[in-house]
Design a protein around this nucleic acid. Sequence first.
DNA 1: GCAGCAGTAATCAAACTTGAATAGCTGATC
DNA 2: GATCAGCTATTCAAGTTTGATTACTGCTGC
Lengths: 213, 213
Amino acid sequence: MSAIRLLVLGAVRQHGRAHGYQVRNDLEYWGAHEWSNAKPGSIYHALKQLAKQGLMRAHDIAPSPAGGPPRTEYELTEAGTQEYFALLRASLSQHDRKVDELSAAIGFLVDLPREEAVALLKERVRGLEEWRLSVTEYYTPADGPEQLGHIGEIMNMWVHAADGGAEWTRGLIERIEGGAYVFAGEGEPFVGVLAEGQVNPYATGEADPEYGD
Amino acid sequence: MSAIRLLVLGAVRQHGRAHGYQVRNDLEYWGAHEWSNAKPGSIYHALKQLAKQGLMRAHDIAPSPAGGPPRTEYELTEAGTQEYFALLRASLSQHDRKVDELSAAIGFLVDLPREEAVALLKERVRGLEEWRLSVTEYYTPADGPEQLGHIGEIMNMWVHAADGGAEWTRGLIERIEGGAYVFAGEGEPFVGVLAEGQVNPYATGEADPEYGD
DNA sequence: GCAGCAGTAATCAAACTTGAATAGCTGATC
DNA sequence: GATCAGCTATTCAAGTTTGATTACTGCTGC
């Protein structure tokens, strides 16, 4: 559940204090329901879990002003902030994680200082190159790759994915080094959450590629 | 659970009759534990589930000849075979499925006639191109793409993935049309499972990229 | 001759995910 | 002015996945 974890931690952190529905809305705003398992059930589960693990503080709040059942607001603890950054760094630098985790991490990329973001992404590229090498070596039987028959196509797909991933990452590094976006400590931070009452311009409720996961 | 479903159906089908541990071993032989959630628990669960749904017949067998608790052998029913091919076709042609499903499907690709495999893969390419278009259109706000800030990088990643996936698929189509591999109805089929007692030359128990899923 | 390790085979509790259901309020429609 | 649709907000049961654990056998060294 690291992707959900990262998303929920990041969303609550940006609000300072948020309830489940707010988080759910942010994630939809980010398109997260399309590339991750960010369904209501999972979000509420994650919030409870994180609270149980001491990463969030829960505050019971009176019934909402606009109808619905009474709601609970959450707030990161110090440990929660630590966990957030640890997860963010790991998701960016380690290639052997699910795609939804990377997507989430890209969304929070600017919470880090610029140089650190670049360093982590370079680490990712290194990992991808290493992995590519290990796949081609490990899965080449002693008696030649023909032994594998069409099974070799699976490895070929991995290699292709590794190359594509590395290429994309290099492009991103270039843009960041070129001065794109506003990172931590560089002034007015990027506003990535919906204010109370603001409508989500991207909420359509359709189109569900669910690529990767 | 479609990936596990496909893997288990395909493995049992190739054996004719197989017990859980045999399936588990085949999946490891294929490297499936590296790119799918093919853990023992999931495999046994899938077998039971498939049996419950009438896609497999279960046979209780006396305690194994080589130690361990009594085992159960499974065998595809007619409905199971139908389901297997339906799943295989869907996994190959639909781009909006998880990567592990595609990996599994590639492993079983040669269970289909050559022309059908090509047709399904072409369908996949069409879907990827369409999806690429929808991503670039849908996530370009009226007031220009800069509005999205670094969030646009997530969409960029998708587009990159779509392009890479389409390119890889086209390459595969080319190789198949060029006569590579032995498909259904073309003589001696490819042997993709371990015979009883044969050791798995790829079983190392380490290296776990877990790419995609 | 037996302690311990490696291999065979399967199960279980706990955690996680899914999709649907619930429940209250507002505004529109007939 | 009843009721229906739609939004706010959360919970729940059922299904799936995970990681550990169990249980049994054969071999190996001492």
